[in-house]
Simulated assay, not measured.
Amino acid sequence: MKQRQEMSEREYFAFIGRRPGMFVGKASFHMAAAFLAGYEGHAGRHGGPSLLTGLDEWLVAHRGRDCNHGWPGQILHIALPHGWENMWDLPPADEQRAITVLFELLDAFLAEREATACVRRPE
């Protein structure tokens, strides 16, 4: 019998990022962010690893500017440097750009965290 291979967190979120509408109903930045927050909440409640711990600080360092927004607002600032009129009703091109940047930044954050964890592991 063939064993099932599990996806890493990075693989799982890359998979979701390719087709977010399959997971959240409507492919929207806010629905994708809510999905990630729900995933984080479930992991915390059930003793799983934290996905988003440190993401706020990482985004501030990545952006080079302090910001009082949580990670969703910071990602919108990075994805849409020209700003927006109504963050809850983004034009389709901005919506798609924000979703793409969300999953790109999440992958970069998780990759950096994995690399740091590998360096710190005692042999």
Rank of each mutant, 00 (worst) to 15 (best):
Asn86Ala: 15
Tyr12Gly: 04
Gly47Pro: 11
Leu52Asn: 05
Ala108Gln: 13
His30Asn: 13
Trp88Met: 09
Ala115Arg: 14
Met87Asn: 11
Gly73Asp: 05
Glu40Pro: 02
Val60Tyr: 05
Asp66Trp: 11
Trp58Tyr: 10
Met7Val: 08
Leu76Glu: 06
Glu114Cys: 03
Phe29Asp: 01
His62Met: 02
Gln5Leu: 08
Arg10Leu: 12
Glu114Val: 02
Gly25His: 12
Phe29Arg: 04
Glu11Asp: 07
Gly44Glu: 13
Glu6Ile: 06
Gly21Asn: 06
Pro49His: 10
Asp94Gln: 15
Phe29Asn: 04
Gly38Asp: 07
Asp56Arg: 07
Asp89Phe: 07
Gly83Tyr: 15
Gly38Phe: 06
Lys2Asn: 03
Gln74Phe: 11
Lys26Cys: 01
His62Ser: 07
Gly44Pro: 02
Ser8His: 04
Leu105Gly: 03
Ala98Leu: 03
Gly25Pro: 05
Pro92Met: 13
Gly38Ala: 04
Arg10Ala: 14
Pro49Arg: 14
Gly54Ser: 03
Arg65Tyr: 12
Gly73Ile: 06
Met1Gly: 07
Gly54Lys: 01
Glu6Thr: 09
His69Cys: 15
His30Tyr: 11
Arg97Gly: 02
Lys26Tyr: 08
Gly21Pro: 08
Glu123Met: 14
Trp88Gly: 13
Val101Phe: 00
Gly21Trp: 03
Phe15Arg: 08
Arg121Met: 06
Ala115His: 12
Ala33Asn: 12
Leu102Glu: 04
His42Thr: 15
Ala61His: 11
Phe13Asn: 03
Phe15Ala: 13
Met31Trp: 12
Gly73Thr: 09
Met87Lys: 12
Arg121Asn: 01
Gly38Leu: 06
Asp94Tyr: 12
His82Gly: 14
Thr116Gln: 08
Ala14Glu: 02
Pro49Ser: 07
Lys2Trp: 00
Pro72His: 09
Arg65Pro: 06
Asp56Pro: 01
Gly38Ser: 11
Met1Asp: 00
Ala14Thr: 12
Leu76Ser: 06
His77Pro: 00
Arg63Trp: 14
Leu59Cys: 10
Pro81Arg: 04
Phe109Lys: 04
Asp56Cys: 01
Gly70His: 06
Gly44Cys: 13
His46Trp: 15
Gly70Pro: 01
Pro81Glu: 04
Met22Arg: 15
Thr116Cys: 08
Gly70Asn: 09
Pro72Lys: 09
Glu85Thr: 15
Leu51Phe: 05
Pro122Asn: 05
Phe35Asp: 00
Val60Pro: 01
Gly41His: 12
Ser8Gln: 02
Cys67Asn: 14
Ser50Ala: 15
Ala93Leu: 02
Gly17Ser: 11
